[in-house]
Amino acid sequence: MKQALKLILSTLFGACIGFGAVMFCIVMFTGTSVSDFLEKMGNVQIVTLLLSCVLSMVCLILAVFVQIILHEAGHLVFGLATGYRFVSFRVGNITLIKDKGRFRFKRFSISGTGGQCLLSPPDRPYRQMPYFWYNAGGVLMNLLTAIIALILWVAFPKMPLALHLFLLFSFISGFFLALMNGIPMKAAGITNDAYNLIFMRKDPESRKYLAQQLSINAALMTGTRLKDMPEAWFPNDEITDYGNTFQVSAKAACGSLHIDRGEFKAAEKIFKELMQHEKEIAGLFVKEISCELLFLELVGDMAANEVEELYTDKLKGYVLRYKNVMSSKQRLLCALALYWENQPEKAKEIYGKVLRNRDRYLQQGEVAADLEIMEKMLREAGVEP
Rank of each mutant, 00 (worst) to 15 (best):
L371K: 01
Q343K: 15
Q3G: 02
N236M: 07
K269I: 13
Y209F: 11
T240K: 10
D370Y: 06
E278Y: 00
K323F: 03
H75T: 12
V58H: 02
E380N: 14
K269C: 12
L9E: 14
G352S: 12
G114A: 13
A282L: 01
P122L: 09
K158M: 04
N342Q: 12
L197T: 12
L210I: 10
L152I: 05
L226N: 04
S10A: 15
G92H: 07
N142L: 06
G137I: 03
I69K: 10
A266Y: 15
V299C: 11
R356G: 06
R261S: 01
F13R: 02
M28H: 07
Q247A: 02
M229G: 00
E39A: 11
F65E: 12
L177E: 09
N244A: 01
K186D: 15
V44N: 09
A303M: 09
A155G: 04
R360C: 04
F108I: 09
V248E: 05
F171V: 00
R331S: 05
I270W: 10
Y242V: 01
K98M: 08
V154S: 01
E375C: 07
I281E: 03
A188L: 11
Y131P: 03
F175G: 15
L140S: 05
G114S: 06
K323R: 14
P160G: 12
S10H: 09
H75I: 06
C291V: 11
F246C: 01
A303L: 07
E263N: 12
R90M: 12
M200T: 12
P230M: 00
M180Q: 10
K251C: 03
E384I: 06
K314L: 10
K316I: 07
I110S: 05
A267M: 13
F108V: 07
V22A: 11
F19H: 08
Q363K: 04
F156W: 13
F37L: 15
P344M: 05
L76A: 00
K6W: 10
T113V: 14
V307H: 07
Q3M: 08
Y361R: 13
K100T: 05
C25W: 10
L257H: 07
A188R: 12
A253D: 14
K323C: 08
K287N: 09
N181M: 11
V354C: 06
A194H: 10
F169D: 03
L210Q: 12
E345T: 04
S256Y: 15
R107D: 06
F285S: 06
K227L: 00
R90N: 08
L76M: 04
R321Q: 14
H258V: 02
E345K: 11
A335P: 14
Q3A: 13
I110L: 15
L70C: 02
K329P: 02
K2G: 13
E375S: 11
N135T: 10
A187E: 15
F246A: 03
C254H: 12
I270R: 05
E292H: 04
L296E: 05
S173H: 02
V286Q: 14
F166T: 00
R321V: 07
G255L: 11
V27L: 02
L226P: 01
R107I: 04
Q212R: 04
C291N: 05
S52A: 07
